[in-house]
Nucleic acid binder design. Structure first.
Lengths: 213, 213
DNA sequence: AAGGCCTCGTGAACAGCGTTCAAAATATCT
DNA sequence: AGATATTTTGAACGCTGTTCACGAGGCCTT
């Protein structure tokens, strides 16, 4: 009556997610997982090649859920007949902020892990999930009438999303009291307001010609 | 004729910086430092309480240099009589991008370290250095005529900087080939263009009234 | 039922890590 | 010079991820 191989894998991932959320990447230990799952250390390595794979699997589940949350938020607004671009972008940003707040320990771990594999070979499932998130934003931008071609709209979506992301992660560097949460939201509001206004006035085409290097 | 205590500390920090830049935080090992510095492991712990303190010291030196680089870039533009806000912001962003590119290994370590101490008590020297960077951006924004009061200008500065930061760090998740560098710069250009245009048209005051939670 | 095979769980063992601390070496003072 | 204070040392401790020879248990064939 023991658990299936796949069931045990999911149990391990659930335990790993809790560990990551409680103490970050440093808290993800093979022996702790084994003990809490009621198996031996070796069995953990039977299910996953190493702890990196466990960490990666947890992160992908998180990214997946985040994407689903974003899509759900968009569907909600659609149902309510909200078609204003600024409202919709703010709703997406709010969903993102809430998600990060709900995963105080594991979200930093997602980012740190993500960054660590910079040396590895080309794109993989990880990037695909991130692209899904970009696509959602691009879809919202498409509703606005900014005179952007597909390429430029995709660029704007990535820019906007990366910016929100930067605000949230920069903000969560400091103490996570409610004052900080307010500051983050003020920044997001300002960014989105300025961004939409800027797009409306053709700011996406304002080239200054500065050379990067 | 051995080195002074402070000289040895600097030697250790120089070695640590190289190690971090070459292999990230995981490459910062007490035994490696000791070997390369020609001292024993124990002596490293005589100079610094633990490796965290070494890492922190290296990061603060980097942030310090980054601030100096930004100020130097501003002084250059001032000397050339460039007063256009968009140009100046782009120059700052370019300085930031170049700095990150020049420290491919240690800059991620700065961020990861920064994030890790989220549980610690209040503001410290680390935050002070980050505030210095915000102040430089705020100074540039002051030159523009956006009708912003001090408080709102500071918020805009933090927002803009966090956004640039997000673009750069998100971008460097993927492979660091030159195509990626181009993508990053395109995003920065779009962000700055849209941001300035948005500020000019009062986007900083466009409230949508969406509640965060 | 007995034997052979094979898959899978096991936990002791290994190498490496950060960190400590009693002792040795060096420096400083009387 | 002798005594005292300081600093340097590296072996040792406890922890980590990871491996792998071993043995238990199921499954098929004889």
């Amino acid at each position: 009556m023991a658990l299936d191989k796949e069931e045990m894998s999911e149990k391990v991932l659930a335990i790993a997610e809790t560990l990551l959320n409680e103490g970050g990447a440093a808290n993800l230990k093979a022996r702790t997982i084994a003990e809490q799952a009621g198996i031996s250390v070796g069995s953990v390595y039977n299910l996953f090649a190493d702890l990196d794979e466990v960490h990666r699997a947890v992160n992908m589940r998180l990214l997946d859920r985040l994407g689903a949350t974003g899509l759900a938020a968009m569907a909600d607004l659609e149902r309510q007949g909200v078609r204003d671009v600024q409202h919709r972008i703010l709703a997406m940003a709010a969903a993102y902020v809430r998600f990060v707040e709900a995963h105080p320990g594991s979200w930093p771990a997602v980012l740190a892990f993500n960054r660590r594999r910079a040396t590895r070979p080309g794109p993989d499932a990880y990037d695909a999930l991130l692209d899904d998130l970009f696509d959602i934003v691009a879809g919202v931008l498409k509703a606005g009438d900014f005179g952007l071609d597909d390429k430029r709209r995709a660029l704007a979506a990535r820019t906007l999303w990366s910016s929100v992301h930067g605000i949230v992660t920069s903000g969560y560097v400091a103490n996570s009291d409610s004052r900080q949460a307010e500051e983050i939201w003020h920044q997001v509001e300002l960014l989105v307001g300025v961004f939409v206004k800027g797009l409306e006035h053709g700011g996406a085409f304002a080239h200054a010609g500065t050379k990067p290097v």
